[in-house]
Design a protein around this nucleic acid. Structure first.
Lengths: 141, 141
DNA sequence: CCAACACCCTGGAGCAGCTACAGGGTCAAG
DNA sequence: CTTGACCCTGTAGCTGCTCCAGGGTGTTGG
């Protein structure tokens, strides 16, 4: 199957497939005389594996490791668990950061409800206060 | 004040300061005969403004706009509100995405509790299932 | 007065994970 | 035989920095 079909079946961009090949994530396919890549079903599986992992927001380096586990199924799987735990920890941390960010933004947003000149805008005033080291709603103790 | 002091006061890296200057966010400072940058207090204010906005995870393009509002205080401030609303929307969306990601990861993690060979690992099996288009715990309907 | 060391300069490359060209070649349908 | 869809390589761009290499400057201590 040609790269366009493969990409469509895996719901990703052709450029992305070539990128994964360059990065060594996806095995190099056969080439036709024309130079066109020709993929076997196993390539589609691997690509879908990669895309699924990406949809779980794993990094390419981690996916590389998972692909190794896939190739060497006799290996101890504790590395897989650790990898997933690290990923979960990362996600939890990001959520926490975004939650506090959300709070700060809400407080800041509340500083200006009506349309006025920027001079009178509470948001800009608060941002300026913060820049001057004065207390501001979004960064209070 | 020299760049090292400025950077320390704003709690950021010297390279970052130079980067902001290159990007046109921070006004170019005076130069000593030696070529060293010399900053006035207004530069520190501007830098702290930028860093504060960055701590709210605003993009540099947005901060550029906010700096314009700061320079032209007679302008209508509705752009500021819109900008902040967009930022809040972005954060909410990210939180939502991460929450669903978290759920998926938990489900996947539950597939393998004990140490074993990768062959028997439920996590790897689930990831493989997903790659084959079969149902998997993290991506069920 | 000189050495040592901290600081500063520029220009360029690197990170992650793609995406988007430019400038070509290939292939199937009508 | 032409049109249009596809494919190729190589390179550059995105974001927001960060980190060199290979130099110059400024200050402090002996």
């Amino acid at each position: 199957m040609r790269i366009g079909i493969l990409a469509k079946l895996a719901a990703c961009d052709v450029e992305t497939v070539r990128y994964y090949e360059r990065e060594g994530l996806l095995e190099k396919p056969e080439r036709a005389a024309s130079g066109y890549r020709h993929y076997a079903p196993r390539h589609l599986e691997a690509l879908q594996f990669i895309r699924h992992c990406r949809s779980l927001d794993m990094k390419l380096a981690e996916i590389r490791q998972l692909l190794d586990f896939r190739r060497l199924p006799e290996r101890d799987c504790s590395g897989i668990n650790a990898l997933l735990d690290a990923q979960i920890a990362r996600v939890l941390q990001q959520i926490q950061m975004l939650e506090s960010l959300k709070e700060q933004l809400y407080l800041l947003r509340a500083e200006c409800e009506q349309r006025q000149s920027a001079q009178g805008c509470g948001i800009l005033r608060s941002l300026n206060d913060a820049a001057m080291g004065r207390p501001c709603p979004c960064h209070e103790p």
